[in-house]
């Protein structure tokens, strides 16, 4: 019970810390709408020649684009940068002095931020986008329930990947390069930009063994009802499995990271 109260409090401060920036965030809604519009017209042009590409119909693709980019505002996080900054400016010291699980602290603090983003970005984007573009509601009997669950899992999966990336700041001076590389991997291989089924077979084969496609591609397929029920369950289970694996890797890496910590002077 005490633990729950602790993580609830982490979420609270993650949420509250962004209240001061809510107008900035609302401005970002506009940029996201622009990106969605660009993608929308791009994909419409692509589908002009053929009715079905890589298993997607045009109307599925349109929904994929809008829901995918909206969901991205929710499952994105800044954990890698927060850790990188803290290591660089030395404030990591203050984190180490708190008797708490650093990894879960970041997960839940960022989840508070994600809840904030859901209210101030995801929802406004979906509302406006659904007025501008034809999007379908979640498909099937389980879609409306399993899709939100799956996106929450996406958040924790992506949080884990960012956490591992952030810990790299303990080992290398060039954080920025590592962070950009991670971001690129997530953008491309999560399936936000292009559905995984558009990739060559060997890339799809490789991605089966990597966590990235469980961030966006898998939940979006669930939303669109493109998978049979057994595959839906499998997808959600694999998300959970990856969250556990990455969490464990984070715990392990943390022990090496803090041994590397060398802070001269202040």
């Amino acid at each position: 019970m005490k633990k729950v109260a602790k993580y609830w409090q982490f979420m609270r401060i993650g949420f509250i810390a962004y209240l001061a920036h809510r107008f900035q965030v609302l401005m970002n809604v506009l940029s996201y709408l622009l990106v969605i519009a660009l993608n929308y017209f791009l994909w419409r042009a692509v589908f002009a020649s053929r009715p079905v590409i890589a298993g997607f119909t045009m109307s599925q693709m349109m929904t994929y684009v809008v829901i995918g980019w909206s969901a991205r505002t929710f499952f994105a996080n800044r954990i890698d940068r927060m850790i990188g900054d803290a290591v660089r400016d030395g404030s990591i010291v203050m984190d180490l002095l708190k008797p708490t699980n650093f990894q879960l602290y970041h997960y839940f603090r960022s989840f508070g931020r994600a809840v904030f983003m859901f209210v101030f970005m995801t929802l406004p984007i979906i509302v406006v986008a659904s007025l501008l573009f034809p999007i379908k509601p979640p498909s099937g009997r389980l879609g409306p329930y399993l899709f939100p669950l799956s996106v929450v899992l996406s958040f924790f999966l992506h949080a884990g990947i960012s956490y591992l990336t952030g810990l790299m700041a303990f080992f290398t001076r060039n954080n920025e390069g590592v962070f950009r590389f991670k971001q690129m991997l997530v953008e491309v291989f999560s399936g936000v930009m292009i559905p995984i089924s558009f990739f060559p077979a060997w890339v799809q084969g490789a991605l089966f063994w990597l966590p990235f496609k469980y961030i966006a591609y898998v939940p979006l397929r669930i939303y669109l009802g493109m998978e049979p029920l057994s595959r839906v369950h499998q997808g959600v289970l694999l998300q959970v499995m990856w969250i556990i694996i990455i969490y464990a890797a984070g715990q392990l890496l943390w022990h090496f990271a803090i041994k590397r910590l060398e802070i001269q002077g202040g």
Binding site: K6, W8, Q9, I13, A17, A20, G90, V93, M94, K98
Partner: peptide, 23 residues
């Protein structure tokens, strides 16, 4: 540490205290 804070920049002091109570 005189040069650092253990509080959280963007949140009110009382919220930080409450968080420490939980931690």
């Amino acid at each position: 540490f005189g040069q650092r804070t253990q509080l959280w920049w963007d949140i009110a002091v009382i919220e930080a205290f409450n968080l420490l109570q939980k931690i």
